[in-house]
Simulated assay, not measured.
Amino acid sequence: MNKDEYAFLPEAFFDGVQEQEDEEELDPYFRPDAVSGDEEPEPDMNWLPETPTEPCPCCGAEIPENPSWGYICPMCGWEIDYDVEGEPDKPSDQNHGVSLAEARWNFHSFGTVAPWRIIENG
């Protein structure tokens, strides 16, 4: 209540009434239970050995260097097949007869080596 707006009223009317101050606007994203980044430093991960990587032959995502037979790229679903390495048009037994060239086309078109899996599960 602003006293200036009500100057016609006697001063006794305002006894015990405090001027309201503008309240600080609360942050809707404030969480008192959350720890701020300043309080807890990032963990030191230098003790972890660095894993050498190489690009996936199909999609180019980083996969472990020299993966074993049967390793499946988590990005595109290509199963490592050293029999078709260097021959992109040769059908891969590990990948249900899909050639590396066809798998690359499928990945760029559908986001996966095997688009029929999307249709079956969809």
Rank of each mutant, 00 (worst) to 15 (best):
K3A: 06
D4F: 09
E5Q: 13
Y6N: 10
A7M: 11
A7S: 14
P10V: 12
A12H: 07
F13A: 13
F14M: 09
D15V: 13
G16Q: 08
V17R: 15
V17T: 14
Q20V: 12
D22A: 15
D22S: 13
E24P: 10
E24T: 15
E24Y: 14
E25S: 14
E25A: 15
L26M: 13
L26P: 09
D27P: 03
Y29M: 12
R31L: 06
P32M: 07
P32C: 05
P32D: 12
D33V: 06
D33G: 05
D33K: 08
A34G: 03
V35I: 14
S36Q: 08
D38C: 01
E39K: 08
E39C: 03
E39V: 12
E40H: 02
P41H: 04
P41D: 12
P41I: 04
P41Y: 02
E42M: 06
E42D: 11
E42H: 02
E42K: 08
P43E: 13
P43S: 04
P43A: 06
M45D: 05
M45E: 07
N46R: 13
W47V: 12
L48T: 04
L48A: 10
L48G: 00
E50K: 13
T51F: 00
P52F: 00
P52Q: 09
P52H: 02
T53R: 09
T53N: 06
P55D: 07
C56W: 05
P57F: 00
P57W: 00
C59V: 06
C59T: 07
C59P: 02
C59M: 07
I63A: 00
E65S: 12
E65G: 01
N66G: 03
W69S: 09
G70D: 04
G70V: 04
Y71N: 04
I72T: 14
I72F: 00
C73W: 01
C73L: 01
P74D: 08
M75G: 00
C76K: 01
G77V: 02
G77W: 01
G77R: 01
G77Y: 00
W78C: 03
Y82P: 00
Y82L: 11
D83S: 10
V84R: 02
E85Q: 13
E85L: 13
E85C: 06
G86E: 05
G86Q: 05
G86F: 02
D89Y: 03
K90V: 07
K90T: 11
P91L: 05
S92G: 09
S92N: 07
S92Y: 09
Q94P: 00
Q94E: 15
Q94I: 02
N95D: 08
H96V: 07
G97Y: 11
V98C: 08
S99P: 08
S99M: 12
L100Y: 03
L100G: 06
L100I: 10
L100M: 14
A103Q: 07
A103W: 07
A103F: 07
R104M: 14
R104K: 15
W105T: 15
W105K: 15
N106P: 05
N106I: 06
F107G: 04
H108R: 15
H108Y: 05
H108G: 08
F110R: 10
G111D: 09
V113N: 05
A114R: 06
A114L: 12
R117M: 13
I118W: 01
I119D: 11
E120Y: 11
E120C: 04
